[in-house]
Nucleic acid binder design. Structure first.
Lengths: 226, 226
DNA sequence: ATAAAATGACTGAATGGTCAGCCATAGTTT
DNA sequence: AAACTATGGCTGACCATTCAGTCATTTTAT
């Protein structure tokens, strides 16, 4: 007799995990994240209201709080989701056996493509620094910062490799990584501000050319292919 | 007899304009601007409270509103004040008879020096895009945006000049201006994030080298002096 | 029938902006 | 020069609004 109760409980647990409800919940979570992404991109963190996000996701305000702990959490999770995708795409691209310089070229292309497809993400990141200023230490905030740093670090190592191989001049590899990201960032900003949007992706050659010629080792000019 | 009254009135007016009170007022305006600059840099637009600015300026909240119309106005005026200084410094530097490339080099130096001396200004500008999103069109906001654009435009023209003289490869001069600013911006951001602050100014050579080699015309390598 | 999910009215805290009054200083009168 | 008056810069309590987050109630699914 007693065993029936826990069985029913487990049963329900299973249903929750794999049944319709579970799927619904996932749907809603994604729906909210996507709605939030758009609104945060448009207005920035502070002027965005949970009510508005809920409306966009066609849910009630209270429902948001069933899936996220706070506005801040929602904000950071929106960022984290996209940052993870970007990171995985870049890491995927780096798996090949190419030379460092070729891999850098690939990173530029992947990054620009991602930003072109995720303008909202870029806009949010742009305002990220503003929103994290003078706020209590938050687990999620730090996770995002850490992922950002990890990305720059990865790029820095790649550049260092290129330096070691003599492809790039012996300069501070981390600073060069920062510079490369700065070039990408500023061109993206420019692209977003343009009303008549040309393709951002096609600027990969411009980025590559300027960066590569700017940093390449004179003795190694043969490696500048294409 | 009648004329005495208006005379006295004018007399008082003069005293108000040039006397103690008038000086006091100027003092306060600057005081508020400087306090606001610090707080805005630290916390960003939205989390900054007028009360806090007032406290820092050792004035009462209401007093702020005697000198500025709103929090937004104060914010934009803080930016505008510094932007004007930067613009004038750069314009001053461009007056010489140097070649375009030499003038670009000077702009880099002046800009980096200014940012090193005005880290707070940079921090505010960083969050500028966030705070201006989805806000009613404001005269002051547009003035600031216009000045920013003017700066990029000026740099673009300078680069175009260099292109025309064959110093720089024939690329989109505006995009190159954007790239140069991106390099400067990202290195400044990096510099600010460093706890052990090296000099930002000394990176002028790095910026110059990377940018110049990245864009220079092959046929014109002689012009790369120093 | 039961429990989970969703709702949205409500609450409390925060804060931009206001304004009636205070008081230091300047001007006037005796 | 002393006493009185007028001025206006400054103040901070107060008001109105906005909004994150809560929870009693309703809806939905099984």
């Amino acid at each position: 007799m007693r065993s029936i109760v826990p069985l029913k409980y487990l049963e329900r647990k299973m249903i929750n995990l794999i049944g319709k409800r579970r799927i619904r919940q996932q749907d809603h979570k994604i729906k909210i994240l996507e709605a939030a992404e758009k609104i945060f991109a448009k207005k920035g963190f502070y002027p965005t209201t949970i009510e508005e996000v809920a409306k966009k996701a066609r849910l009630a305000k209270g429902t948001i709080y069933l899936y996220f702990n706070s506005k801040e959490d929602l904000f950071f999770l929106v960022i984290e989701r996209k940052l993870d995708i970007l990171l995985s795409k870049v890491e995927e691209e780096l798996k090949g056996p190419d030379s460092p310089s070729q891999r850098i070229k690939k990173v530029i292309a992947v990054h620009l493509k991602f930003l072109e497809e995720n303008g909202d993400f870029f806009k949010i990141m742009e305002g990220f620094s503003e929103s994290l200023k003078e706020k209590l230490e938050k687990k999620l905030k730090n996770r995002v910062i850490q992922k950002q740093s990890y990305y720059i670090e990865m790029l820095g190592k790649l550049i260092q490799e290129a330096i070691n191989k003599g492809e790039i001049k012996s300069l501070d590899s981390r600073k060069l990584a920062v510079i490369l990201m700065g070039i990408i960032h500023s061109l993206t900003l420019y692209w977003i501000s343009q009303k008549e949007k040309d393709s951002l992706f096609k600027d990969q050659l411009l980025v590559w050319e300027v960066f590569w010629k700017g940093v390449k080792n004179k003795d190694y000019s043969k490696s500048y292919v294409e």
